[in-house]
Simulated scan of single mutants.
Amino acid sequence: MHNLNFRPKAFLFDLNGTMINDMEYHTLAWYSIMTEDLGTALDYASVKKEMYGKNHEVLERVFGKDRFSPAEIERLSADKEKRYQAGYLPHLALIDGLDNFLERAKAAQIPMAIGSAAIPFNIDFVVDGLNIRHYLSAIVSADDVHTSKPDPETFLKAAEALGITPADCLVFEDAPKGVESALHAGMRCMVLTTTHTTEEFENYPNILGYIADYNDAKLNTLF
């Protein structure tokens, strides 16, 4: 376990798998499109490995850059998000303990932001569906950056929007690419073990610790 004597001045949250436990529904939506609509022979595990970055990046990694026209990518992306939202809506909920953690951070006057590769359509679905927008001072989405994680742009823009030095920010992430993004941004991370095993993060020196949810007592050291 890494040193927990860190008092962050801001909290930056990835969204999917970090504030909500929904990555299965993103994967199922893509799996449906890739196997049923596009006729690939990919298994679920292979699709899951590609679940990071913007939608067009997912399609390009799987099918190559020249497979789809911009119009086809837009149509496939829209269809994927509709399937994701329809599948996840009955289960829409914050990860356990996050409601209290957000209240505690607000009371401590620690500014918070979302830094996500999700599109605004999905961020709004979550933020407004769970009524947590009032906790957030900034939201950086896929539409706000040129380069997705593991590039640091997402988290650097979130820190800039909050007016906080990157080194004073703590990122909450669930994916290795997100932790790598925070590392490149000069930020420390707390990892949610909702999507990946701890062994998948062993090469990242910026991790403070691992939590299954926001009821973990080690979060008490952050205030």
Rank of each mutant, 00 (worst) to 15 (best):
M1S: 12
H2V: 07
F6V: 00
F6I: 02
R7P: 15
N16G: 07
N16D: 13
T18W: 04
M19S: 07
N21T: 04
N21C: 04
D22F: 00
D22Q: 00
M23P: 06
Y25E: 01
H26V: 01
T27E: 06
T27S: 11
L28K: 11
A29M: 05
Y31I: 02
S32H: 13
I33K: 08
M34S: 12
M34E: 08
T35C: 08
T35K: 10
E36A: 14
T40Y: 03
T40K: 03
A41C: 15
L42N: 09
D43E: 07
D43H: 06
D43W: 10
Y44M: 12
A45P: 13
V47K: 06
V47Y: 09
K49W: 09
M51R: 10
G53A: 04
K54I: 08
H56N: 11
H56K: 14
E57P: 06
R61M: 06
F63K: 12
G64I: 01
F68K: 09
E72H: 10
E74Q: 13
R75F: 14
L76Q: 10
L76F: 06
L76R: 11
L76H: 09
S77C: 10
S77R: 08
A78S: 14
D79Y: 10
D79R: 14
K80C: 03
E81K: 13
R83D: 01
G87N: 13
Y88F: 04
Y88H: 02
P90W: 08
H91A: 03
H91G: 05
L92Y: 05
A93H: 12
L94R: 13
E103H: 13
R104N: 15
R104A: 10
A105P: 00
K106I: 15
K106P: 10
Q109H: 15
P111F: 01
M112Q: 04
M112E: 03
M112G: 01
A113T: 00
I114Q: 01
I114E: 05
G115K: 01
A117W: 14
A117T: 14
F121E: 15
I123K: 11
I123C: 07
F125I: 05
V126H: 05
G129E: 06
N131H: 12
H134C: 12
H134Q: 13
H134S: 12
Y135W: 14
V140Y: 03
S141Y: 10
H146K: 14
T147H: 15
T147M: 12
T147R: 14
S148N: 11
K149F: 05
D151S: 13
D151Q: 11
D151E: 10
E153F: 09
E153W: 10
K157D: 00
A158V: 03
A161G: 05
L162N: 00
G163L: 06
T165K: 13
T165Y: 15
T165R: 12
P166A: 02
P166E: 02
C169P: 01
C169E: 02
V171K: 01
E173K: 06
K177I: 15
G178Q: 04
V179A: 09
L183N: 13
L183S: 14
G186C: 04
M187V: 00
M190L: 04
V191D: 02
L192H: 08
H196I: 06
T197A: 15
T198S: 13
E199K: 15
E200G: 10
F201P: 02
F201I: 05
Y204Q: 04
N206Y: 00
L208Q: 01
G209K: 06
Y210G: 04
I211W: 06
A212G: 13
D213Y: 04
D213W: 07
T221K: 14
L222H: 01
